[in-house]
Structures are given as C-alpha cells and as structure tokens.
Amino acid sequence: MSVWLSQHGDAFRTALRRLAASPVNTLLSLLAIGVALALPAGGQMLVANVMQLARNSAPTPQISMFLELDADKRAGQELQARLKEHPGVKVFKLIPRDETLTRMKSREGLADVIEALPRNPFPDAITVLPEDDRPEAMEKLAAEFRKWPKVAQVQLDSDWARRLAALLKIGRTGVVLLALLLGVGLVAITFNTIRLQVMTRRAEIELSRLLGATDAFIRRPFHYFGILLGLAGGIVAWGIVAAATWWLSAPITDLARLYSLDFALRPLSAIDSALLLIAAAGLGWLGASISLRQHLADD
C-alpha cells in the first residue's frame, strides 16, 4: 500500500513539475480552459438567480373556478364540500357574485356600465390554491374541476409560471449545451497538451519501458497532469464567475430596487462550485486518457 501511495505521490509531483516547467504554456492553457468553463458556470449562476427571483417576487399561482349563472347557493356549498375533501387542494375561497359586483362597481369607469346592465352578469367564483403548484399538476387539477357539475369555466392563473418555466427550461438547456460544447473544448486542449508532453518525453518513456515500467506507471503522471490542468482551469473559471458576480452585484441590486424588488445577485452555490471543479478535473482526465490511448498505444 505504501509503495502504491509512494508511486502515486511521485506521479503527482512529476505532473506538478511538468506544469511548472513551462509556466507560460501552462498559464495560457489555464486561461483558455478557465474562460471556456466560466461561460456555462456563469450561465448556471444566472439561471439559479432568475429562479430565485421568480420564487421571491411572483404571486402564488391559483385556479379560478366560475360557476354557471343559474347555480344556486346549494350547488356552491356542494362544490365547497368537495373541495374540502380533495387532497390536491390546499386552500379555497368562495367569492359570491354580489361581492364581485360590488367590487367591480367600485372601480373607476366601470360603475356606470355595470349600473346600466339589467342584472348581475357575474357568476359565483371559487379560488383554489393547490398543494402542488407545478404547472403540470395545476393543469391536471383544473381539468378535473372542469368535469364537476355546475362549473362553467375553470381558469388557470399559472400562465406566468408556465412562461417562466419555459424560459428557464431554455436557459437550462442553453447552459447544458454550452457546457457540452466547451467541455469538448477542454478535452481538446488537454488532449493537445498531453500530445506535446508525450512527444517531448518520448526518450524518457522509451527508457522507462526498457527499465521495466508498466503502462500504468508511464501513464500515471500524464493522467495527473490532465486532472491538475482541468482542476486549475476550473479554479480559474470559478474565479472569473466570482469576480463577475462581485462586479455586477451592485448595479443589479440598484436595478431591482427600481422595480421594488429585494434582490441581490448570489454567487455560485457550494454544490455548483464543487460540481464545476469535479467536472473540470474529470474532463482533464478524459482528455489525457484519449490522448494517451492515441499516442502511447503503439509504443
């Protein structure tokens, strides 16, 4: 075990030495990887912030149930009884047609129009707050209410939620696409860097084989090299996103205040940061592995 650890320690130190041996090349590679990873990481941070903003500032989604005009008081009571027993309903409230009429009359410009009407045109209505406010769950609940007797119309007040969910879905998909695309870029950078390393260390590799080195022994420092390159690039990306967050935070907070919103830009979460670093290291390892398979296979 100690020999195994010692060999890994040697390989790790060798990889560090190789990174330090050509500082300019290493720095340029790290910047390229950092910028490439900063784009999807920054995108993820923005999507997370928009979701947070939406949760904090949007009204609670509800379902409005309008009864038929000839529905009597008893029909309204029956519907309320059903809603009370329904497991998908959190809270509901009956709004009698007279109350609606009174409220509408109090609105500027509507009083005269309503006074001119021969009778109350408004139906009784019930507003329902569902237990599950996801758009698909609300849609299902609304469809069920539409089948109930004496229900003329059911209106889903979750259009905003659906639009936002659609927008966020596009945003998340964009982030994933960007991450995939730029992840391939990171693999390509590591692939090429390892290829150059293999070329410049051809004599050492050949000698190591002649002295009894296994394939694993020869590949190990290159794998560590790829992991370190990816990890360091991930740290650079994290730094870029953190700096951008710090820079944009004050102007965005000021803008939010203009819309009466209490909002502050949040940096990448601990989980997102950890995922960024793990993914960067993993992609570095992948680039190194592909390169070694290509360039050491026939040695």
């Binding site: 020999v3 195994w4 010692s6 190591s208 002295l211 009894g212 022994f217």
Partner: peptide, 11 residues
C-alpha cells in the same frame, strides 16, 4: 534512481 522508482522501492 529511476529503475528503483519504477520497481516501487521505498523512497
């Protein structure tokens, strides 16, 4: 030192 490192000798 190289052959000994390859063979896994303790440092």
């Amino acid at each position: 030192l190289l052959p000994l490192t390859i063979s896994g000798f303790p440092p």
